[in-house]
Computed example of a mutant assay.
Amino acid sequence: MSDNLNSVFGNVHLGYIVIETEKFDDWKRFGRDAIGMHVDDLAHDAMRFRLDANECRMLLRRGPAEDVIALGWQIDHHATFDEITRRVADHGVPSTKGSDDDAKLRGVERFLRFPGPNGLTQEIYTTARTAPMPLNIPSSGFVTGDGGLGHVALTTKNPYLVRGYFDHVFDARLSDYIDETINGLKLKIRFLRVNERHHSVAIASVNTLPVNPIRTRVQHVNVQMATLDDMVDSYQRVTRLGFDMALSVGQHTNDKELSYYALTPSGFEWEVGWNPIVVDESTWQPTTHQGISIWGHTPEGQTVVDKLRQFAIAARSLTHRENAVTPLAEPPIYDD
């Protein structure tokens, strides 16, 4: 992690995600009709979802991955943008400027991309374009602002390196841990924040397994509704439209968010939540929680729990490989 004078913490916000999929019709039903996001059809091979005034919060590109392929991070100042760019370059990691066409699709003025953990390309930008038309959504809105879009969760056999990557590139801070036991398997989940949101990245360690059991680069994506009624209404739409529910409504132990998890058309999960705590930097101390939920979050379909159980049989045939981008993945000094 850099020294405090050059810290970028608080000036970084998860701005958008890029999804590659062939299932545009299914995603439109899921994103617009079920979750309740604003949709913009751009062309045969591109579609966007909006949550707020920004032109783009989720960009869907046509392709075979059925996965999140990139994370876009909004950077508050050009000096911070330059600092992150320097960190990447100083460690010999290649970066490329996004084309004007790609920037337009993402609703940003310019962006820089470079490799990230789990094959997730990282993209940084300073200025998001705002949409001229108001949102067309069935709820009172989503919570973004200083906390950014929401969060992503991923599984990895290299938790120290993945945490080290986000520590080094974005000066991420550890919010807390959750220890969870699933079918006799002990898991430790690390929650990292880059601003006031309790976490923008969650890292579930599967380093006791032969390979990573999750096919997709992310295990889930989270968005936050403005009111409890909004969250409940979206849960009912997901169920009514026949989409699989991975976990029913429940409350997390660490950030206290009420949420549910639906299964996306691409196979990863989509968490819709309400009212997580906001971190107070003057008083916050990392701690360890036992179990992911205070109540609820019971399985209603195939979840990471089911996949881990199946993994005991199928592990030897899997070939999931991870790229930890080790030049940028300096392991944190204090971890366990």
Rank of each mutant, 00 (worst) to 15 (best):
G291M: 10
N275P: 09
N275D: 14
H289N: 08
G273Y: 01
E269N: 06
Q302T: 09
T288C: 10
E281I: 08
D280L: 10
H297W: 03
G296H: 01
S282V: 08
W270L: 05
T288R: 11
E269S: 11
P299W: 10
W295Y: 15
Q302A: 06
W270G: 03
E300T: 08
S293R: 06
W295E: 04
P286D: 12
T288P: 02
H289S: 11
T288G: 05
W270Q: 06
D280C: 10
H297L: 10
T288S: 12
T288A: 13
W295S: 01
Q302G: 02
V278L: 12
W295Q: 02
G301C: 07
W274M: 00
S282G: 01
P299C: 13
Q302S: 05
T288V: 13
H297Y: 03
W295F: 15
I294L: 10
I294E: 04
D280N: 15
P286Q: 13
N275F: 12
T283A: 13
T298A: 06
E269D: 12
I292T: 04
G301H: 05
N275I: 06
P276F: 02
H297K: 02
G296F: 07
T287M: 10
G273E: 04
S293I: 09
E300N: 13
P299L: 13
Q290P: 01
G301Q: 06
N275A: 14
E271W: 02
E281H: 04
P276C: 04
V279H: 02
E271L: 10
W284S: 03
I277A: 00
S282L: 11
Q285F: 08
E300Y: 07
T298F: 04
V278D: 13
P276L: 04
T298K: 08
I294F: 04
N275Q: 14
H289R: 12
T283N: 07
G273N: 02
I292A: 10
T287E: 07
D280I: 08
W284T: 01
I294M: 04
W270I: 01
Q290E: 15
V279Y: 06
T288N: 07
E271K: 04
Q290I: 15
W270V: 03
E300V: 07
E271R: 02
G301P: 00
G296N: 08
V278I: 15
P286E: 11
T287G: 03
W270F: 15
Q290H: 15
I277P: 05
V272C: 07
T298I: 11
I277E: 01
T287W: 06
E269C: 05
V272M: 02
S293H: 09
Q290N: 14
S293F: 11
E269M: 12
P299D: 15
G273W: 02
S282Y: 05
S282D: 14
H289L: 12
V272S: 02
E281V: 09
H297N: 12
G296W: 04
T287F: 09
S293E: 08
Q302V: 11
Q285H: 13
E281P: 00
Q285N: 09
P299R: 13
W295N: 00
P299M: 14
N275W: 09
I292C: 05
F268C: 08
T287C: 09
E271M: 07
P276H: 00
N275R: 14
G291K: 11
E281C: 03
F268R: 00
G273D: 00
W284N: 06
G273M: 03
W295D: 00
H297R: 01
P276E: 03
I277Y: 02
V272R: 02
